[in-house]
Design a protein around this nucleic acid. Structure first.
Length: 1028
RNA sequence: GCGCGGUUAGCUCAGAGGUAGAGCACUUCCUUGACACGGAAGGGGUCGCAGGUUCAAGUCCUGCAUCGCGCACCA
């Protein structure tokens, strides 16, 4: 034991212990140690981007994972918290491209693919470890020996394997379709990467001439626009315009620049205004040099109410239009380049312009040719690229798609917490895998045995639970309506698609080139109808195969696709004239394998069945992540888990809230409202940051972050530090034996409070309510242990009884020893430091806290034997409570009568019964009294303030110093309050319905309450009498 | 449009049928031998609104208001 400094200084402590834990291998999981007595517990980290920097979201997320991991270790489980990063395709590539431009003024094309990728790897080696280092500062107990990266060789192989497997199953296909195109990143995106945002723009109304209109009836309105009768909101009505014998249609659009791409206009077949024109043609106004005739088609999709009821159809640049085009066999004219500029086909006026510039020019052009009728301000939802924050461009493009596998299983496994039946599963998870901790039987003090509480809404066997469970509904909805996943990205950084292609130029070309067997067995497939591929070994080397499919694109030529994992086969394919697909896979197509690809999964069932890591740690126990990636990641991992492991990937998913600033705004770099967690750690300490964040993060709510929370965390640590320092300053034997015979009411009270706290904490843990745990920790340690128990203990320390003093020390050690352990998951550093400083590690076996508090046993609530042994009967608690109540009232006198807090004054107590002298000593000390005269026959001088308690009457005899009138006023005020309470209770008890129907214990409680208030009333009245 | 969440003390949030809670902020007093990153004592709420169920409603039900978040092809 060394002297500890007055204020807690986290920096050196944190550094020292983190290094110690790592050097001693405290975080390293060993699958060989897993058995019935020692169940495995596992979490895979949601891999942060290699480009990433730690932000408060990471702090929240990873602190929770660390708490779960550390708690599980103390529960006696073998814990794997598996860390790593993902390669973040677009984000990383963009960063490196930017750096390249800045430093060398070059583009990736200047370097070429291979050289560019070298640069990305170099960049990754240099910057990729930053976030990992930051997680270490936070205290994360990840198994760093098993750190993974999604581009690791083994991991990449898993990705390829999965691709070929799905391809072979006919679930992956290539198709020419409308995709979400990001003109900045110049790649396709999945639907999930598109964010709808309201945009202010214009609705342009322009007219087009019907080229082959029937003779206009004379009665036809000649105006295209009218207004509906006399309504206040003048809602224009539209119809064909007849003017000078010509018929025109009025069309509303937000995107006039795409007019050159229009290949039809469409109306609803039920729209009487236009039915006679269906089948006719209009003259497309742009480009002016190419005013083509395009048909008027009838399609149900058109909303009669919207705009003019006429829709321009641009199959190449709108998803809905594309579908209409399919239904009516319309050509698609692509008027945009991949970078968002207008193409040749857009015509001379627009060609080369950026799409937004072109929009203005197109509108001007319409005005110029007299086609524009009007423009109005308009707000609509536009899809934005999440990554580049620019409007996406729906674009017809050839991409790889995936029909999601194992959807049925994924839908079935997540328990929907509905009213009724599902509620039943809340109770004991008797048969659940989580209860495997119940088989734990560890020797030692009952108080030291690990907790085996497995209450709460944990998942049933084979099932999964979301916390909070409302996300199950969101998940369910998404999974029930999913579209095929566009998995190819036009990037260089990522997993290159292991598919090779060769277009078929002539009817027999490929047949000559490839072996007969391939031709005969290779099925045809299209993007609408898939089938299983044909497996063949081109090289003839055993175990090396290629999967072939013959492919016909929509409106395109036929081709052959081949997918293989084998480099030997790849060489052969090259020989036969195949080229590898240049694209890479969506990053999520690799992260969805994270829970098992990180554990050495190979895809070979025989090998995987013998994999000790998978056997010990799959399925993982808990996943902690943000709800913003429920579709991107969580749902897809569940599908992958079923598809390749035949089992769900995790049992519980904890969804964190989103961290916002104290005004409720999202954290963002541009707002500058996102504090750097490392600064906070430097200023307050990692424990303080952890505690502060956890304290303000209720389950299922967003977190409004305030630096004050971290300050509070620091204060808490400092308080803990000083409480332990106080203990240390008392000296004496460490963790002496507690003698039950010497326990006073305060000792018993704090032991009961400790028991209560442990119960509450276990319960909150079972429900993943971490902020409730912190609330209990805070209350128990600060409001109960420090404010009352330590203060009361000073009476023994100042007293003359060495046996009592030693016993109080033993109680303090007992409580602190338990407290440090329940604090440990939240405050790993300071608890480890104090654990050793106070000498609690000394007598314990190495693997039970002797080396580190990390594996000290989690405290267990007291059983009846323990309670009986220490005499922890409810009356002990009542006596202590009565004492504290009396003390509070006594202290209140100081304020009422303006007596400075530091002035020692004399009190007198007329006890209601027997009061042991050391109990009186405690009261005297807590009152900061000069003396406390305990006298059953005490008669107070007139005008003496008094307070009533079950322990007796407390008096403050300050002759001459007390203003009798003021005291009378005080008592009268209190009397009024008491009378209000009496009235309330009497009213209730006077209600026959209440007395007849309320349960007995409620009734009894009310009667007791009334009696208490009435006694109080009497006492105050007596006191008032005494004053006059 | 559909779905989900919030609305409780000045602020941030707990509480889910039986006497309204915490932290911060505020007021007064206190550098007393663990801690001023501290101690003591206080003040402060008709629990968004309106109905209903109940002996009893922040708590359960129905509607409404309001803020926020998902999902959705209205040009």
């Amino acid at each position: 034991m060394s002297e500890i400094p007055k204020a807690y200084e986290p920096q050196s402590v944190e550094e020292k212990w983190y290094q110690f834990w790592c050097e001693e291998g405290c975080f390293t999981a060993d699958p060989a140690r897993v058995n019935e007595q020692r169940p495995g517990y596992s979490i895979v980290i949601p891999p942060p981007n290699v480009t990433g920097m730690l932000h408060l979201g990471h702090v929240l997320n990873n602190t929770i994972q660390d708490i779960l991991s550390r708690k599980a270790r103390m529960d006696g489980r073998e814990v794997l918290w598996l860390p790593g990063t993902d390669h973040a395709g677009i984000a990383t590539q963009v960063q490196v491209e930017k750096a390249l431009k800045r430093e060398e003024k070059k583009t990736k094309y200047d370097l070429g693919r291979e050289e560019f990728l070298k640069r990305v790897w170099a960049w990754k080696e240099k910057h990729g470890g930053i976030i990992i280092q930051q997680l270490k500062k936070l205290g994360c107990s990840c198994d760093w020996t098993r750190e993974r990266f999604t581009m690791d060789e083994d991991y990449s192989r898993c990705v390829q394997k999965v691709f070929v497997d799905l391809y072979k199953k006919g679930l992956i296909y290539r198709g020419k379709r409308m995709v979400n195109w990001c003109p900045v990143s110049q790649t396709a995106l999945s639907d999930e990467e598109v964010e709808m945002k309201p945009q202010k723009g214009f609705l342009w109304y322009f007219r087009v001439e019907v080229a082959d209109a029937p003779e206009a009836p004379a009665t036809e309105s000649s105006a295209g626009e009218g207004t509906e009768s006399d309504g206040k909101d003048e809602k224009p009505t539209y119809g064909p315009i007849v003017e000078n014998g010509k018929t025109y249609l009025l069309i509303a659009t937000t995107r006039p620049e795409t007019i050159p791409g229009d290949t039809a206009v469409a109306v609803n077949p039920k729209d009487p205004r236009y039915t006679h024109l269906v089948g006719k043609h209009v003259i497309r106004p742009l480009p002016v040099e190419n005013q083509a005739r395009i048909p008027i088609v009838a399609d149900e999709h058109i909303d009669i109410e919207f705009g003019t009821g006429v829709l321009k159809v641009t199959p190449a640049h709108d998803k809905a239009d594309f579908d209409i085009g399919q239904r009516h066999q319309l050509p698609a004219v692509d008027v945009l380049n991949p970078d968002g500029t207008m193409s040749e086909l857009a015509g001379a006026d627009l060609k080369g312009l950026d799409r937004f510039e072109a929009r203005k020019v197109a509108a001007a052009k319409l005005t110029e040719i007299g086609a524009l009728v009007k423009e109005e301000r308009y707000e609509n939802n536009v899809g934005f690229s999440q990554r580049a924050d620019v409007p996406i461009e729906p674009r017809l493009s050839e991409q790889w798609f995936l029909k999601y596998p194992s959807v049925k299983e994924a839908l079935a496994c997540v328990e929907q917490a509905e009213e009724g039946s599902a509620r039943g599963s809340r109770a004991d998870s008797g048969g659940s895998p989580e209860s495997s901790s119940q088989v734990l039987k560890l020797e030692g003090d009952v108080l030291d045995a690990p907790s085996n509480t497995a209450r709460g809404p944990r998942a049933l066997p084979g099932k999964m639970r979301f916390h909070p469970d409302r996300w199950a509904k969101v998940y369910d909805h998404w999974l029930s309506n999913i579209q095929d996943w566009c998995i190819s990205r036009q990037l260089w950084w990522g997993h290159r698609i292991p598919a090779w292609t060769q277009p078929v130029t002539g009817p027999t070309q490929w047949v000559r080139a490839l072996p007969q067997a391939v031709e005969e067995n290779t099925p045809w497939t299209t993007d609408l109808q898939s089938s299983r591929g044909f497996d063949y070994s081109l090289s003839g080397v055993p175990g090396h195969t290629t999967v072939f499919q013959r492919y016909r694109l929509h409106g395109g030529g036929p081709g052959i696709y081949a997918a293989t994992l084998s480099s030997v086969e790849e060489a052969k394919l090259a020989e036969y004239g195949f080229t590898q697909d240049p694209d890479v896979l969506d990053t999520w197509f690799s992260s969805w394998l994270w829970p098992f690809a990180t554990m050495g999964w190979t895809g070979d069932p025989a090998v995987d069945a013998e994999n000790p890591m998978l056997k010990a740690f799959y399925p993982t126990s808990d996943l902690v992540t943000g709800p913003d990636i429920i579709f991107f990641w969580v749902a897809r991992m569940i599908m992958a888990g079923y598809e390749w492991m035949g089992d769900l990937p995790f049992r519980n998913v904890y969804f964190t809230g989103i961290i916002r600033d104290k005004q409720g705004r999202k954290m963002s770099k541009t707002l500058g409202n996102s504090p750097d967690p490392l600064d906070l750690i430097a200023k307050y300490g990692a424990d303080a940051l952890r505690f502060g964040v956890m304290r303000s993060a209720p389950l299922g709510q967003d977190v409004l972050f305030d630096e004050k929370d971290v300050e509070l965390g620091r204060n808490f640590c400092n308080k803990l530090w000083n409480a332990c320092r106080f203990r240390q300053m008392q000296g004496g034997e460490v963790e002496g034996e507690i003698n039950p015979a010497l326990l006073g009411s305060d000792d018993k009270w704090i032991l009961l409070r400790l028991d209560q706290a442990i119960c509450e904490i276990d319960e909150a843990f079972a429900d993943y309510k971490f902020n409730e745990v912190t609330a209990t920790l805070y209350r128990f340690f600060w409001s109960e242990f420090c404010d009352w128990y330590l203060e009361a203990a000073k009476a023994a320390f100042q007293g003359e009884d060495p046996a009592r003093k030693a016993n109080v020390l033993a109680v303090i050690d007992f409580v602190l020893g338990h407290m440090l352990r329940v604090f440990h998951p939240f405050l790993p550093f300071i608890t480890e430091e104090l654990w050793h400083d106070l000498g609690y590690a000394e007598d314990l076996p190495e693997d039970q806290g002797g080396k580190t508090i990390m594996v000290a046993h989690w405290p267990k609530p007291f059983d009846n034997d323990v309670k009986a042994h220490y005499g922890l009967e409810p009356t002990a608690e009542q006596l202590a409570n009565a004492k504290y109540d009396l003390v509070t009232k006594g202290r209140n006198f100081r304020r009422e009568f303006n007596i400075p807090a530091n002035k020692k004054i004399a009190f007198a107590l007329r006890p209601a019964g027997q009061l042991e002298s050391h109990e009186a000593d405690v009261i005297r000390l807590l009152l900061n009294a000069e003396t406390l005269e305990v006298n059953p026959a005490y008669v107070p001088p007139k005008g003496t303030p008094s307070a009533h308690s079950p322990l007796g009457e407390l008096y403050l005899p300050l002759e001459g110093l007390i203003d009798a009138e003021a005291e009378k006023a005080r008592l009268t005020k209190e009397l009024a309050k008491v009378e209000v309470e009496i009235q309330k209770v009497e009213q209730k008890l006077g209600n026959e319905n209440f007395t007849a129907r309320a349960p007995a214990h409620v009734l009894a409680e009310h009667r007791q309450r009334l009696a208490d208030w009435q006694a109080r009333q009497e006492q105050i009245r007596a006191a008032v009498d005494c004053l006059s």
